[in-house]
Nucleic acid binder design. Structure first.
Lengths: 232, 232
DNA sequence: ATACAACAGGGACATATGTCCTTTCCGAAA
DNA sequence: TTTCGGAAAGGACATATGTCCCTGTTGTAT
Protein backbone atom coordinates (compact mmCIF):
# COMPACT_ATOMS: atom_id res chain seq x y z
CA UNK A 1 0.00 0.00 0.00
CA UNK A 2 1.16 3.46 -0.86
CA UNK A 3 -0.19 6.76 0.33
CA UNK A 4 -1.04 9.22 -2.44
CA UNK A 5 -0.15 12.79 -1.47
CA UNK A 6 -2.58 14.51 -3.78
CA UNK A 7 -5.27 16.50 -2.01
CA UNK A 8 -6.88 17.56 -5.27
CA UNK A 9 -7.32 13.99 -6.41
CA UNK A 10 -8.87 13.13 -3.06
CA UNK A 11 -11.27 16.06 -3.36
CA UNK A 12 -12.19 14.95 -6.87
CA UNK A 13 -13.21 11.51 -5.56
CA UNK A 14 -15.17 13.07 -2.71
CA UNK A 15 -17.03 15.14 -5.27
CA UNK A 16 -17.47 12.33 -7.76
CA UNK A 17 -19.11 10.07 -5.17
CA UNK A 18 -20.84 12.87 -3.28
CA UNK A 19 -19.06 12.06 -0.05
CA UNK A 20 -18.48 15.61 1.14
CA UNK A 21 -21.67 15.67 3.16
CA UNK A 22 -20.94 12.35 4.88
CA UNK A 23 -17.76 13.52 6.52
CA UNK A 24 -17.48 16.69 8.55
CA UNK A 25 -14.51 19.04 8.26
CA UNK A 26 -12.53 17.40 11.03
CA UNK A 27 -12.94 14.02 9.41
CA UNK A 28 -12.10 15.23 5.91
CA UNK A 29 -8.80 16.53 7.22
CA UNK A 30 -7.84 12.98 8.19
CA UNK A 31 -8.95 11.30 4.98
CA UNK A 32 -6.16 10.10 2.73
CA UNK A 33 -5.81 8.30 -0.60
CA UNK A 34 -4.06 4.96 -0.80
CA UNK A 35 -3.13 2.86 -3.80
CA UNK A 36 -2.70 -0.91 -3.97
CA UNK A 37 -1.10 -3.00 -6.69
CA UNK A 38 -2.89 -5.84 -8.43
CA UNK A 39 -2.64 -8.94 -6.24
CA UNK A 40 -1.87 -6.98 -3.10
CA UNK A 41 -3.83 -7.66 0.08
CA UNK A 42 -5.69 -4.65 1.43
CA UNK A 43 -6.73 -6.48 4.57
CA UNK A 44 -5.91 -9.98 5.79
CA UNK A 45 -8.31 -12.13 7.73
CA UNK A 46 -7.36 -12.22 11.41
CA UNK A 47 -5.17 -9.12 11.39
CA UNK A 48 -5.85 -6.11 13.56
CA UNK A 49 -8.10 -3.62 11.81
CA UNK A 50 -7.26 0.09 11.88
CA UNK A 51 -8.75 1.71 8.77
CA UNK A 52 -12.12 2.32 7.32
CA UNK A 53 -11.68 2.19 3.54
CA UNK A 54 -13.79 3.36 0.63
CA UNK A 55 -13.03 1.80 -2.73
CA UNK A 56 -13.06 4.58 -5.32
CA UNK A 57 -11.16 2.96 -8.20
CA UNK A 58 -10.44 -0.58 -9.39
CA UNK A 59 -11.79 -3.97 -8.38
CA UNK A 60 -11.39 -6.10 -5.27
CA UNK A 61 -12.05 -9.68 -4.26
CA UNK A 62 -13.33 -10.54 -0.79
CA UNK A 63 -12.86 -14.03 0.52
CA UNK A 64 -12.60 -16.15 3.61
CA UNK A 65 -10.52 -19.25 4.21
CA UNK A 66 -11.10 -22.18 6.49
CA UNK A 67 -8.40 -23.71 8.65
CA UNK A 68 -8.14 -26.53 6.08
CA UNK A 69 -7.30 -24.07 3.35
CA UNK A 70 -10.73 -24.21 1.81
CA UNK A 71 -11.39 -20.86 0.18
CA UNK A 72 -14.75 -19.18 -0.22
CA UNK A 73 -14.98 -16.09 -2.37
CA UNK A 74 -17.74 -13.88 -1.02
CA UNK A 75 -17.80 -11.29 -3.75
CA UNK A 76 -16.03 -9.11 -6.22
CA UNK A 77 -16.62 -5.39 -5.79
CA UNK A 78 -16.14 -2.19 -7.72
CA UNK A 79 -16.62 1.41 -6.53
CA UNK A 80 -18.21 2.64 -4.37
CA UNK A 81 -17.63 0.05 -1.61
CA UNK A 82 -16.98 0.30 2.12
CA UNK A 83 -14.47 -1.90 3.95
CA UNK A 84 -13.83 -2.20 7.67
CA UNK A 85 -17.21 -0.94 8.87
CA UNK A 86 -18.13 -4.05 10.86
CA UNK A 87 -14.65 -4.21 12.35
CA UNK A 88 -14.80 -0.54 13.29
CA UNK A 89 -18.14 -0.67 15.08
CA UNK A 90 -17.56 -4.05 16.73
CA UNK A 91 -13.89 -3.41 17.49
CA UNK A 92 -12.81 -6.80 16.18
CA UNK A 93 -10.10 -8.20 13.93
CA UNK A 94 -10.49 -8.32 10.17
CA UNK A 95 -13.17 -10.83 9.17
CA UNK A 96 -12.34 -11.46 5.51
CA UNK A 97 -9.34 -11.02 3.28
CA UNK A 98 -9.63 -8.25 0.71
CA UNK A 99 -7.36 -8.47 -2.31
CA UNK A 100 -6.89 -6.08 -5.22
CA UNK A 101 -7.91 -7.74 -8.48
CA UNK A 102 -6.72 -4.73 -10.45
CA UNK A 103 -4.76 -1.65 -9.39
CA UNK A 104 -6.94 -0.07 -6.74
CA UNK A 105 -7.40 3.32 -5.05
CA UNK A 106 -9.03 3.72 -1.68
CA UNK A 107 -9.96 6.60 0.54
CA UNK A 108 -8.90 5.60 4.03
CA UNK A 109 -9.27 6.98 7.51
CA UNK A 110 -8.01 5.57 10.77
CA UNK A 111 -10.55 4.45 13.33
CA UNK A 112 -9.24 6.83 15.97
CA UNK A 113 -10.39 9.83 13.93
CA UNK A 114 -13.77 8.26 13.30
CA UNK A 115 -14.19 7.68 17.01
CA UNK A 116 -13.13 11.18 17.85
CA UNK A 117 -15.03 13.16 15.24
CA UNK A 118 -17.55 10.80 13.71
CA UNK A 119 -19.31 8.74 16.35
CA UNK A 120 -21.99 11.35 16.87
CA UNK A 121 -22.07 12.82 13.37
CA UNK A 122 -25.52 12.01 12.01
CA UNK A 123 -24.75 11.94 8.25
CA UNK A 124 -21.90 9.47 8.83
CA UNK A 125 -24.01 7.29 11.12
CA UNK A 126 -26.81 7.24 8.55
CA UNK A 127 -24.39 6.42 5.75
CA UNK A 128 -22.82 3.59 7.76
CA UNK A 129 -26.22 2.22 8.76
CA UNK A 130 -27.51 2.31 5.18
CA UNK A 131 -24.36 0.65 3.86
CA UNK A 132 -24.10 -2.04 6.50
CA UNK A 133 -27.75 -3.06 6.22
CA UNK A 134 -27.45 -3.34 2.44
CA UNK A 135 -24.29 -5.46 2.73
CA UNK A 136 -26.00 -7.61 5.36
CA UNK A 137 -28.95 -8.25 3.06
CA UNK A 138 -26.85 -9.07 0.01
CA UNK A 139 -24.34 -11.25 1.82
CA UNK A 140 -26.89 -13.25 3.77
CA UNK A 141 -28.86 -13.88 0.60
CA UNK A 142 -25.69 -14.97 -1.16
CA UNK A 143 -24.62 -17.37 1.59
CA UNK A 144 -28.13 -18.76 2.11
CA UNK A 145 -28.48 -19.29 -1.61
CA UNK A 146 -25.20 -21.21 -1.66
CA UNK A 147 -26.45 -23.39 1.21
CA UNK A 148 -29.91 -24.11 -0.11
CA UNK A 149 -29.23 -24.92 -3.74
CA UNK A 150 -27.08 -27.45 -5.59
CA UNK A 151 -24.14 -26.40 -7.71
CA UNK A 152 -26.13 -26.68 -10.93
CA UNK A 153 -28.59 -24.02 -9.78
CA UNK A 154 -25.84 -21.80 -8.43
CA UNK A 155 -23.85 -22.00 -11.63
CA UNK A 156 -26.92 -21.18 -13.69
CA UNK A 157 -27.54 -18.17 -11.51
CA UNK A 158 -23.96 -17.06 -11.83
CA UNK A 159 -23.90 -17.40 -15.61
CA UNK A 160 -27.08 -15.37 -15.86
CA UNK A 161 -25.59 -12.66 -13.71
CA UNK A 162 -22.46 -12.28 -15.78
CA UNK A 163 -24.16 -12.49 -19.12
CA UNK A 164 -26.68 -9.92 -17.96
CA UNK A 165 -23.83 -7.56 -17.21
CA UNK A 166 -21.98 -8.38 -20.40
CA UNK A 167 -24.82 -7.10 -22.49
CA UNK A 168 -24.10 -3.71 -20.96
CA UNK A 169 -20.43 -3.12 -20.39
CA UNK A 170 -18.26 -5.70 -22.09
CA UNK A 171 -16.19 -7.73 -19.67
CA UNK A 172 -16.38 -5.34 -16.76
CA UNK A 173 -18.44 -7.92 -14.95
CA UNK A 174 -17.77 -9.58 -11.63
CA UNK A 175 -15.43 -12.14 -13.09
CA UNK A 176 -13.84 -13.02 -16.36
CA UNK A 177 -15.16 -16.42 -17.34
CA UNK A 178 -11.87 -18.08 -18.03
CA UNK A 179 -10.82 -18.08 -14.42
CA UNK A 180 -12.99 -21.01 -13.55
CA UNK A 181 -11.11 -21.70 -10.35
CA UNK A 182 -12.42 -18.42 -9.01
CA UNK A 183 -15.94 -19.27 -10.09
CA UNK A 184 -15.65 -22.55 -8.20
CA UNK A 185 -14.55 -20.69 -5.08
CA UNK A 186 -17.35 -18.15 -5.51
CA UNK A 187 -20.16 -20.65 -5.74
CA UNK A 188 -18.58 -22.92 -3.15
CA UNK A 189 -17.62 -26.09 -5.00
CA UNK A 190 -14.53 -27.86 -6.31
CA UNK A 191 -12.99 -27.02 -9.67
CA UNK A 192 -13.61 -30.61 -10.77
CA UNK A 193 -17.26 -30.53 -9.98
CA UNK A 194 -17.76 -27.15 -11.63
CA UNK A 195 -16.40 -28.64 -14.85
CA UNK A 196 -18.80 -31.57 -14.55
CA UNK A 197 -21.74 -29.26 -14.27
CA UNK A 198 -20.56 -27.04 -17.11
CA UNK A 199 -20.21 -30.14 -19.26
CA UNK A 200 -23.70 -31.25 -18.33
CA UNK A 201 -25.25 -27.84 -19.11
CA UNK A 202 -23.46 -27.93 -22.49
CA UNK A 203 -24.86 -31.40 -23.15
CA UNK A 204 -28.34 -30.11 -22.32
CA UNK A 205 -27.93 -27.25 -24.78
CA UNK A 206 -28.25 -24.42 -22.28
CA UNK A 207 -24.73 -23.07 -22.78
CA UNK A 208 -21.82 -23.46 -25.15
CA UNK A 209 -18.19 -23.51 -24.32
CA UNK A 210 -15.58 -21.80 -26.47
CA UNK A 211 -11.88 -21.42 -25.94
CA UNK A 212 -12.05 -18.45 -23.69
CA UNK A 213 -15.66 -18.05 -22.70
CA UNK A 214 -19.02 -19.58 -22.03
CA UNK A 215 -21.97 -18.45 -24.12
CA UNK A 216 -25.52 -18.58 -22.86
CA UNK A 217 -27.68 -20.23 -25.53
CA UNK A 218 -30.95 -20.86 -23.76
CA UNK A 219 -31.42 -17.99 -21.38
CA UNK A 220 -34.99 -18.95 -20.45
CA UNK A 221 -34.07 -22.48 -19.48
CA UNK A 222 -31.12 -21.21 -17.48
CA UNK A 223 -33.36 -18.76 -15.69
CA UNK A 224 -35.80 -21.52 -14.85
CA UNK A 225 -32.98 -23.70 -13.55
CA UNK A 226 -31.69 -20.80 -11.45
CA UNK A 227 -35.12 -20.37 -9.84
CA UNK A 228 -35.05 -16.84 -11.17
CA UNK A 229 -32.33 -16.02 -8.70
CA UNK A 230 -29.38 -13.96 -9.76
CA UNK A 231 -26.10 -13.56 -7.95
CA UNK A 232 -25.52 -9.94 -7.12
CA UNK B 1 -50.48 -10.95 17.97
CA UNK B 2 -52.10 -9.01 20.75
CA UNK B 3 -51.38 -5.51 21.94
CA UNK B 4 -50.76 -5.23 25.68
CA UNK B 5 -52.27 -2.03 27.09
CA UNK B 6 -50.01 -1.75 30.10
CA UNK B 7 -47.79 1.29 30.11
CA UNK B 8 -46.19 0.34 33.38
CA UNK B 9 -45.10 -3.05 32.08
CA UNK B 10 -43.62 -1.35 29.02
CA UNK B 11 -41.72 1.08 31.22
CA UNK B 12 -40.42 -1.81 33.30
CA UNK B 13 -38.95 -3.45 30.21
CA UNK B 14 -37.42 -0.18 29.05
CA UNK B 15 -35.77 0.10 32.44
CA UNK B 16 -34.75 -3.55 32.66
CA UNK B 17 -32.94 -3.40 29.33
CA UNK B 18 -31.77 0.19 29.68
CA UNK B 19 -33.60 1.32 26.57
CA UNK B 20 -34.79 4.68 27.81
CA UNK B 21 -31.79 6.51 26.45
CA UNK B 22 -32.08 4.93 23.02
CA UNK B 23 -35.52 6.33 22.29
CA UNK B 24 -36.40 9.99 22.65
CA UNK B 25 -39.68 11.15 24.20
CA UNK B 26 -41.53 11.30 20.89
CA UNK B 27 -40.49 7.76 20.08
CA UNK B 28 -41.31 6.37 23.50
CA UNK B 29 -44.86 7.64 23.12
CA UNK B 30 -45.28 5.37 20.10
CA UNK B 31 -43.72 2.27 21.61
CA UNK B 32 -46.13 -0.51 22.47
CA UNK B 33 -46.02 -4.00 23.92
CA UNK B 34 -47.20 -6.97 21.90
CA UNK B 35 -47.59 -10.59 22.90
CA UNK B 36 -47.42 -13.65 20.64
CA UNK B 37 -48.50 -17.20 21.36
CA UNK B 38 -46.18 -20.16 21.04
CA UNK B 39 -46.09 -21.23 17.39
CA UNK B 40 -47.32 -17.88 16.12
CA UNK B 41 -45.46 -16.09 13.32
CA UNK B 42 -44.21 -12.67 14.26
CA UNK B 43 -43.07 -11.94 10.72
CA UNK B 44 -43.40 -13.96 7.56
CA UNK B 45 -40.81 -14.02 4.82
CA UNK B 46 -41.94 -11.93 1.85
CA UNK B 47 -44.58 -9.93 3.68
CA UNK B 48 -44.53 -6.17 3.92
CA UNK B 49 -42.61 -5.02 6.96
CA UNK B 50 -44.01 -2.26 9.16
CA UNK B 51 -42.64 -2.74 12.68
CA UNK B 52 -39.32 -2.64 14.38
CA UNK B 53 -39.52 -5.16 17.22
CA UNK B 54 -37.44 -5.74 20.32
CA UNK B 55 -37.75 -9.16 21.93
CA UNK B 56 -38.01 -8.65 25.68
CA UNK B 57 -39.46 -11.99 26.80
CA UNK B 58 -39.52 -15.55 25.48
CA UNK B 59 -37.73 -17.29 22.65
CA UNK B 60 -37.96 -17.04 18.88
CA UNK B 61 -36.81 -19.02 15.89
CA UNK B 62 -35.62 -17.33 12.73
CA UNK B 63 -35.60 -19.25 9.49
CA UNK B 64 -35.69 -18.96 5.75
CA UNK B 65 -37.29 -21.27 3.22
CA UNK B 66 -36.36 -21.99 -0.36
CA UNK B 67 -38.88 -22.20 -3.13
CA UNK B 68 -38.57 -25.99 -2.95
CA UNK B 69 -39.63 -25.97 0.66
CA UNK B 70 -36.13 -26.51 1.98
CA UNK B 71 -35.93 -24.89 5.38
CA UNK B 72 -32.86 -23.34 6.94
CA UNK B 73 -33.00 -22.29 10.56
CA UNK B 74 -30.72 -19.30 11.05
CA UNK B 75 -30.90 -19.02 14.79
CA UNK B 76 -32.86 -19.18 17.99
CA UNK B 77 -32.88 -15.98 20.01
CA UNK B 78 -33.76 -14.83 23.48
CA UNK B 79 -33.94 -11.25 24.84
CA UNK B 80 -32.70 -8.71 24.01
CA UNK B 81 -33.02 -9.04 20.23
CA UNK B 82 -33.91 -6.65 17.43
CA UNK B 83 -36.13 -7.59 14.50
CA UNK B 84 -36.95 -5.59 11.40
CA UNK B 85 -33.87 -3.34 11.42
CA UNK B 86 -32.60 -4.34 7.96
CA UNK B 87 -36.08 -4.09 6.51
CA UNK B 88 -36.58 -0.66 8.07
CA UNK B 89 -33.36 0.90 6.78
CA UNK B 90 -33.47 -0.75 3.36
CA UNK B 91 -37.24 -0.36 2.95
CA UNK B 92 -37.71 -3.95 1.81
CA UNK B 93 -40.04 -6.85 2.52
CA UNK B 94 -39.40 -9.23 5.41
CA UNK B 95 -36.31 -11.34 4.75
CA UNK B 96 -36.81 -14.25 7.17
CA UNK B 97 -39.71 -15.79 9.02
CA UNK B 98 -39.71 -15.23 12.78
CA UNK B 99 -41.73 -17.65 14.88
CA UNK B 100 -42.40 -17.72 18.62
CA UNK B 101 -40.95 -20.86 20.16
CA UNK B 102 -42.47 -19.98 23.51
CA UNK B 103 -44.95 -17.29 24.51
CA UNK B 104 -43.22 -14.06 23.55
CA UNK B 105 -43.39 -10.37 24.39
CA UNK B 106 -42.06 -7.67 22.09
CA UNK B 107 -41.72 -3.94 22.22
CA UNK B 108 -42.82 -2.69 18.80
CA UNK B 109 -42.88 0.58 16.97
CA UNK B 110 -44.10 1.36 13.49
CA UNK B 111 -41.56 2.49 10.94
CA UNK B 112 -43.39 5.75 10.28
CA UNK B 113 -42.61 6.95 13.81
CA UNK B 114 -39.00 5.90 13.50
CA UNK B 115 -38.72 7.86 10.28
CA UNK B 116 -40.37 10.88 11.75
CA UNK B 117 -38.65 11.07 15.13
CA UNK B 118 -35.70 8.71 14.97
CA UNK B 119 -33.79 9.06 11.73
CA UNK B 120 -31.59 11.83 13.10
CA UNK B 121 -31.54 10.77 16.75
CA UNK B 122 -27.93 9.85 17.49
CA UNK B 123 -28.47 7.34 20.32
CA UNK B 124 -30.91 5.35 18.20
CA UNK B 125 -28.62 5.44 15.16
CA UNK B 126 -25.70 4.24 17.27
CA UNK B 127 -27.79 1.49 18.82
CA UNK B 128 -29.01 0.31 15.41
CA UNK B 129 -25.50 0.44 13.96
CA UNK B 130 -24.04 -1.51 16.87
CA UNK B 131 -26.80 -4.11 16.69
CA UNK B 132 -26.78 -4.56 12.94
CA UNK B 133 -23.00 -4.94 12.74
CA UNK B 134 -23.05 -7.58 15.46
CA UNK B 135 -25.82 -9.50 13.74
CA UNK B 136 -23.94 -9.23 10.45
CA UNK B 137 -20.81 -10.68 11.99
CA UNK B 138 -22.57 -13.55 13.75
CA UNK B 139 -24.79 -14.48 10.83
CA UNK B 140 -22.08 -14.39 8.21
CA UNK B 141 -19.85 -16.54 10.39
CA UNK B 142 -22.70 -18.98 10.90
CA UNK B 143 -23.53 -19.27 7.21
CA UNK B 144 -19.88 -19.43 6.12
CA UNK B 145 -19.24 -22.13 8.69
CA UNK B 146 -22.15 -24.14 7.33
CA UNK B 147 -20.74 -23.79 3.83
CA UNK B 148 -17.14 -24.62 4.58
CA UNK B 149 -17.48 -27.65 6.84
CA UNK B 150 -19.09 -31.07 6.55
CA UNK B 151 -22.04 -32.07 8.70
CA UNK B 152 -19.85 -33.99 11.13
CA UNK B 153 -17.89 -30.87 12.05
CA UNK B 154 -21.02 -28.76 12.26
CA UNK B 155 -22.78 -31.23 14.51
CA UNK B 156 -19.76 -31.45 16.78
CA UNK B 157 -19.74 -27.68 17.03
CA UNK B 158 -23.44 -27.59 17.77
CA UNK B 159 -23.22 -30.23 20.48
CA UNK B 160 -20.37 -28.34 22.13
CA UNK B 161 -22.38 -25.15 22.10
CA UNK B 162 -25.44 -26.65 23.77
CA UNK B 163 -23.52 -28.66 26.30
CA UNK B 164 -21.51 -25.56 27.12
CA UNK B 165 -24.73 -23.73 27.88
CA UNK B 166 -26.25 -26.63 29.76
CA UNK B 167 -23.52 -26.55 32.32
CA UNK B 168 -24.80 -23.09 33.21
CA UNK B 169 -28.55 -22.79 32.90
CA UNK B 170 -30.23 -26.15 32.48
CA UNK B 171 -32.11 -26.45 29.24
CA UNK B 172 -32.32 -22.76 28.50
CA UNK B 173 -30.04 -23.35 25.56
CA UNK B 174 -30.66 -22.66 21.90
CA UNK B 175 -32.52 -25.90 21.37
CA UNK B 176 -33.76 -28.85 23.28
CA UNK B 177 -31.91 -31.86 21.99
CA UNK B 178 -34.83 -34.08 21.27
CA UNK B 179 -36.11 -32.01 18.42
CA UNK B 180 -33.53 -33.34 16.02
CA UNK B 181 -35.48 -32.15 13.01
CA UNK B 182 -34.77 -28.62 14.09
CA UNK B 183 -31.09 -29.41 14.59
CA UNK B 184 -31.00 -30.75 11.05
CA UNK B 185 -32.55 -27.54 9.74
CA UNK B 186 -30.14 -25.44 11.80
CA UNK B 187 -26.98 -27.05 10.56
CA UNK B 188 -28.33 -27.39 7.05
CA UNK B 189 -28.70 -31.11 6.44
CA UNK B 190 -31.40 -33.77 6.20
CA UNK B 191 -32.86 -35.47 9.23
CA UNK B 192 -31.61 -38.80 7.88
CA UNK B 193 -28.08 -37.69 7.51
CA UNK B 194 -28.01 -36.09 10.93
CA UNK B 195 -28.94 -39.47 12.41
CA UNK B 196 -26.13 -41.13 10.47
CA UNK B 197 -23.60 -38.73 11.85
CA UNK B 198 -24.95 -39.04 15.39
CA UNK B 199 -24.68 -42.81 15.09
CA UNK B 200 -21.13 -42.52 13.85
CA UNK B 201 -20.08 -40.19 16.68
CA UNK B 202 -21.63 -42.65 19.15
CA UNK B 203 -19.68 -45.50 17.55
CA UNK B 204 -16.50 -43.46 17.90
CA UNK B 205 -17.19 -42.90 21.60
CA UNK B 206 -17.45 -39.10 21.43
CA UNK B 207 -21.09 -38.93 22.50
CA UNK B 208 -23.76 -41.18 23.93
CA UNK B 209 -27.39 -41.26 23.08
CA UNK B 210 -30.07 -41.73 25.70
CA UNK B 211 -33.82 -41.68 25.39
CA UNK B 212 -34.24 -37.96 25.52
CA UNK B 213 -30.82 -36.48 25.16
CA UNK B 214 -27.32 -36.70 23.84
CA UNK B 215 -24.46 -36.71 26.31
CA UNK B 216 -21.01 -35.46 25.45
CA UNK B 217 -18.48 -38.07 26.57
CA UNK B 218 -15.26 -36.92 24.98
CA UNK B 219 -15.36 -33.15 24.97
CA UNK B 220 -11.75 -32.73 23.83
CA UNK B 221 -12.17 -34.97 20.80
CA UNK B 222 -15.39 -33.19 19.90
CA UNK B 223 -13.65 -29.85 20.18
CA UNK B 224 -10.87 -31.05 17.92
CA UNK B 225 -13.39 -32.32 15.39
CA UNK B 226 -15.23 -28.99 15.55
CA UNK B 227 -12.02 -27.11 14.77
CA UNK B 228 -12.57 -25.27 18.03
CA UNK B 229 -15.53 -23.50 16.47
CA UNK B 230 -18.71 -23.09 18.44
CA UNK B 231 -22.10 -22.13 17.09
CA UNK B 232 -23.26 -18.95 18.71
C1' DA C 1 12.69 -27.43 -33.54
C1' DT C 2 12.69 -29.22 -29.03
C1' DA C 3 12.07 -29.45 -24.22
C1' DC C 4 9.89 -28.27 -20.15
C1' DA C 5 6.68 -26.29 -17.05
C1' DA C 6 2.25 -24.76 -16.10
C1' DC C 7 -2.47 -24.96 -16.80
C1' DA C 8 -6.88 -27.00 -18.04
C1' DG C 9 -9.90 -30.78 -18.23
C1' DG C 10 -11.41 -35.31 -17.20
C1' DG C 11 -11.15 -40.48 -15.37
C1' DA C 12 -11.58 -43.27 -11.45
C1' DC C 13 -12.76 -43.93 -7.01
C1' DA C 14 -14.55 -42.68 -2.61
C1' DT C 15 -17.35 -40.14 0.53
C1' DA C 16 -21.11 -37.15 1.77
C1' DT C 17 -25.62 -36.47 1.43
C1' DG C 18 -30.59 -36.68 -0.14
C1' DT C 19 -34.86 -39.20 -1.03
C1' DC C 20 -38.15 -42.56 -0.24
C1' DC C 21 -40.10 -45.92 2.34
C1' DT C 22 -40.39 -49.39 6.06
C1' DT C 23 -40.24 -50.77 10.79
C1' DT C 24 -40.59 -49.98 15.58
C1' DC C 25 -41.98 -47.58 19.49
C1' DC C 26 -44.76 -44.65 22.19
C1' DG C 27 -48.66 -42.17 23.66
C1' DA C 28 -53.45 -41.34 23.60
C1' DA C 29 -58.09 -42.71 23.11
C1' DA C 30 -61.66 -46.01 23.23
C1' DT D 1 -56.18 -54.01 27.21
C1' DT D 2 -56.32 -52.94 22.51
C1' DT D 3 -56.06 -50.08 18.60
C1' DC D 4 -54.46 -46.41 15.95
C1' DG D 5 -51.83 -42.56 14.63
C1' DG D 6 -47.72 -40.02 14.92
C1' DA D 7 -42.93 -39.73 15.63
C1' DA D 8 -38.30 -41.50 15.45
C1' DA D 9 -34.79 -44.22 13.40
C1' DG D 10 -32.71 -46.77 9.84
C1' DG D 11 -32.38 -49.60 5.17
C1' DA D 12 -31.82 -49.21 0.39
C1' DC D 13 -30.78 -46.76 -3.41
C1' DA D 14 -29.44 -42.75 -5.97
C1' DT D 15 -27.21 -38.42 -6.67
C1' DA D 16 -23.98 -34.78 -5.59
C1' DT D 17 -19.60 -33.79 -4.64
C1' DG D 18 -14.59 -34.19 -3.26
C1' DT D 19 -9.98 -36.06 -3.90
C1' DC D 20 -6.24 -37.69 -6.41
C1' DC D 21 -3.92 -38.27 -10.37
C1' DC D 22 -3.28 -38.63 -15.32
C1' DT D 23 -3.37 -36.75 -20.03
C1' DG D 24 -3.24 -33.20 -23.34
C1' DT D 25 -2.40 -28.52 -24.69
C1' DT D 26 -0.17 -24.27 -24.68
C1' DG D 27 3.32 -21.02 -24.00
C1' DT D 28 7.98 -19.91 -23.13
C1' DA D 29 12.80 -20.57 -23.26
C1' DT D 30 16.78 -22.50 -25.33
Amino acid sequence: MKKIENREQLNNYLKEYQLESIFNKSLIEHLALYSFEQGEDICSQGDTSQYLYLLVKGKIKIFTSSSEGRKLILSFKTPLYLIGDIEYVQDIDIINTVEAVSPVIMIGIQYQWLKKFGSEYTPLLQFLLETVTRKFYIKSNFLSFNLLYPVEVRLASYLLSISFYDSDAHNDSGLSINRLRDVADLIGTSYRHLNRVIQQLCAEGLIERTKESIIVINRDALSTLANHNIYE
